[in-house]
Design a protein around this nucleic acid. Structure first.
Lengths: 142, 142
DNA sequence: CTTAATGCAAAGGCTTTGCAGAGAC
DNA sequence: GTCTCTGCAAAGCCTTTGCATTAAG
């Protein structure tokens, strides 16, 4: 049951959006939601904290990002060994990862691999399919 | 230029294998190679260290795994936010990841997605394509 | 008022670093 | 003998935890 939400969300729309997902809209959560739901982005906890306009503790940033993920407002991306990135686009899609800059780009579904979902192993159910195409600047720029 | 190597490698074959890849076969490296090249496996630094028959410091385990990766003997798998796994199978293939047990399974190429390699973004070259199908025990076992 | 959330600092887990001592050739 | 590698412990990151304080309804 996905709510059709149109980004960007204005600050005063965030509280309602959180409530729709069973999340009490406290000050820190609205603050973080306002940063996140400006559009589709890939942010680490640190990056989120850096963009806040009022202070929220690191612990609350982490708690909030976990909560949003649990409630389906975010998707975790495990792509960089040094930190977790959060994707505000929870619709199925895949990524390019610039290994030099550590940046993610969404892949157009037209570019996406033609996939017949693979058979999961016996007794297992597929939870998600993550495709990451690691890229780097062309050798010309070496 | 890939060397066709048949696993498992016996302990006395490891030194030569390392030399072929420009790696000085020191005692810790042969030790680690002997653990790794018994077959296709997915191991963390800790797991490697635990299987050694003689002591190698943690720092050397990490250094060695990085070196082997750099020289193409291993492939790093970024799949679990809490640790890096190393795959002794460097041929192109993909994975199932059991999110509950934290274990990886190789995907048969027959199960693999039909993929027309996606177009990389302008000025970028594809380095690798990583596909991870996250799975969990069937809901029956809830 | 009662329950839930926040903040701070401390603790944790994995990985890297610095540097003296040991090993490879 | 020279250059490289190893080991140990300390330092670094990112993330989680514990617990007293504050906010939500």
């Amino acid at each position: 049951m996905e709510t059709m939400t149109t980004f960007p969300l204005q600050r005063d729309e965030v509280a309602g959006y959180l409530r729709e997902h069973g999340i009490t809209p406290t000050r820190p959560r609205v603050e973080i939601g306002t940063v996140l739901f400006q559009g589709h982005q890939h942010l680490s906890a640190d990056q989120v904290q850096a963009r806040l306009t009022s202070h929220v503790s690191k612990a609350s940033v982490y708690n909030t990002l976990s909560l949003f993920t649990e409630r389906g407002l975010l998707r975790q991306l495990i792509v960089d060994p040094t930190r977790v990135l959060y994707d505000t686009n929870v619709a199925p899609h895949h990524h390019y990862y610039d290994v030099e800059r550590g940046e993610l780009l969404d892949m157009d579904s037209s570019d996406a691999l033609q996939m017949s979902p693979p058979a999961p192993p016996h007794g297992m159910a597929i939870e998600s399919v993550d495709i990451i195409v690691r890229v780097r600047r062309d050798s010309a720029t070496h």
